[in-house]
């Protein structure tokens, strides 16, 4: 996050991500879309989050992509499906279809993942506030973004609490499931409670006051930010022109 890319203004990066997603969705074929992955991987290495990006991608998106391929190519039936064995069929149509779906998923997910890895929540809040977003909207967006790491931490803490009382949480899928399910209730309860307390704390600091806030934290839009945003806009118009005419 301390890289040159990390310090860009959030909306510059966001414009770029938005452009990448729009182009990926509305361009026919799948090579451009697949190329977005190495492209964002490269950007991630430039931003110092390369390994993190790669690991997150492999453990989430890559899995989904593989599953879609397997299901579409071997299981879903198309007119050209060739029986192979039992309920397994082979289909060229399925292959094409999954290339179409997965390439778009890969492209959009790469862009979004990169954005959240190189932009701190602090910067996002700052940018939203400066752009005069409604304050409640800012709070909702931030609580949602922070929810995932919060849930992970909370889950780990409750697991530790169970372990330290001599309760088995390590082992096979069944044991994990048996310990995980009963803790969902308290987990969600405590998250709601935390968010409520968070909201109270903010209220007590004049969160909804209509006065203009000053911020100790500063993040300026530099020439490069304007440059990126204008460039994105031009590229977007060029893309529209190309796709429509």
């Amino acid at each position: 996050m301390n890289s040159a890319i990390g310090r860009l203004y959030p909306s510059s990066k966001f414009c770029f991500v938005l452009l990448a997603i729009i182009v990926s969705i509305f361009t026919p074929g799948h090579w451009l879309q697949y190329a977005m992955f190495p492209f964002f991987l490269f950007l991630s290495f430039c931003s110092g989050t390369g390994m993190k990006f790669f690991k997150a991608f492999i453990s989430s998106i890559a899995m989904i992509v593989v599953v879609i391929f397997l299901v579409q190519v071997f299981i879903v039936r198309y007119p050209d499906s060739q029986p192979i064995w039992g309920f397994i069929y082979l289909s060229q149509n399925g292959l094409e279809k999954s290339l179409g779906i997965t390439s778009k998923i890969v492209a959009s997910a790469s862009a979004i993942m990169w954005y959240f890895q190189v932009t701190t929540p602090k910067d996002m809040v700052y940018a939203m506030e400066r752009a005069n977003w409604p304050k409640k909207a800012t709070f909702v967006v931030m609580s949602t973004i922070q929810m995932v790491p919060q849930v992970m931490n909370q889950a780990k803490t409750i697991m530790d609490a169970q372990k330290s009382r001599g309760i088995e949480t390590e082992g096979g899928v069944w044991i994990r499931l048996k310990t995980f399910v009963p803790m969902l209730g308290p987990l969600i309860f405590s998250l709601i409670q935390q968010t409520e307390e968070h909201a109270l704390a903010l209220q007590s600091r004049a969160f909804l006051s209509s006065a203009k806030k000053t911020s100790l934290y500063r993040l300026d839009k530099h020439a490069i930010d304007w440059g990126i945003q204008v460039l994105c806009l031009i590229l977007f118009i060029a893309f529209l022109v190309w796709r429509i005419f």
């Binding site: 609490a161 372990k163 330290s164």
Partner: peptide
């Protein structure tokens, strides 16, 4: 040993009770 096995011999009360209470 698994944590649960060790914990049966060595009990630990967390620094922050809220990390531990969930009933």
């Amino acid at each position: 040993q698994r944590t649960s096995q060790v914990a049966a011999k060595v009990g630990y009360v967390f620094q922050n009770p809220d990390d531990q209470i969930f009933q």
